[in-house]
Amino acid sequence: MQGQKKMDTIRRIKTASGHLKAVERMVDEDKYCADVLLQLQAVISSLEKISNIILENHLETCMRSAILRGEDEEIIRELKTFMKYKRG
């Protein structure tokens, strides 16, 4: 990963980390459950955005190269793995 995508990914990871630390602090301080859940949703949303950026980069770089090399079976197996873990 390079350039703007890498910088965006790192920025989003730091944001997600901050949200997660806030969740930890809120649980430790026995904050209202609904507030903790809202903060936790921010973590989940951040991680989904990070995952999408990395997947997009992978499709545009690594998988494109694999297609050109004729590695069809490996690509299909990899895509199936991604689909198992994709929410929705």
Rank of each mutant, 00 (worst) to 15 (best):
S45I: 13
A16S: 04
Y32P: 03
D28R: 05
A34T: 15
D28M: 12
S65V: 15
D8W: 00
I50T: 05
G70E: 08
M7W: 15
T15W: 02
M63E: 05
R69F: 08
E74F: 01
H19D: 11
K6Y: 11
Q4M: 06
S46A: 10
C33S: 03
L79I: 12
R69G: 02
C62I: 14
V43F: 01
L40F: 05
Q2W: 13
R87P: 09
C62T: 15
D8F: 00
Y85S: 04
Q4H: 14
R25Y: 04
I54E: 07
D8H: 01
A22S: 15
M83H: 10
T81I: 11
H58G: 00
M7R: 14
A42E: 09
L40M: 05
I75F: 00
I44C: 05
R87D: 11
I54G: 02
R64N: 12
Q39E: 11
H58I: 02
K84H: 08
A22C: 08
L37K: 14
G3P: 02
S45F: 04
E48I: 01
M83Q: 09
Q2Y: 13
Q39K: 03
A66M: 10
E60P: 11
M83Y: 15
L38R: 11
L38C: 08
A34Q: 14
I44A: 06
I53C: 03
I44G: 01
E71T: 07
G88K: 07
C33G: 03
E48L: 02
I75S: 07
R69K: 09
K31L: 04
L59S: 04
S45M: 09
H19E: 10
E71Y: 06
S65D: 15
L47Q: 07
R11N: 10
I13P: 11
D35F: 06
L79M: 06
E56A: 14
K80T: 13
F82L: 01
D28C: 10
L20Q: 15
L47S: 03
S51C: 04
A66T: 12
D30V: 01
E29Y: 08
M26V: 10
R25E: 09
Q4E: 15
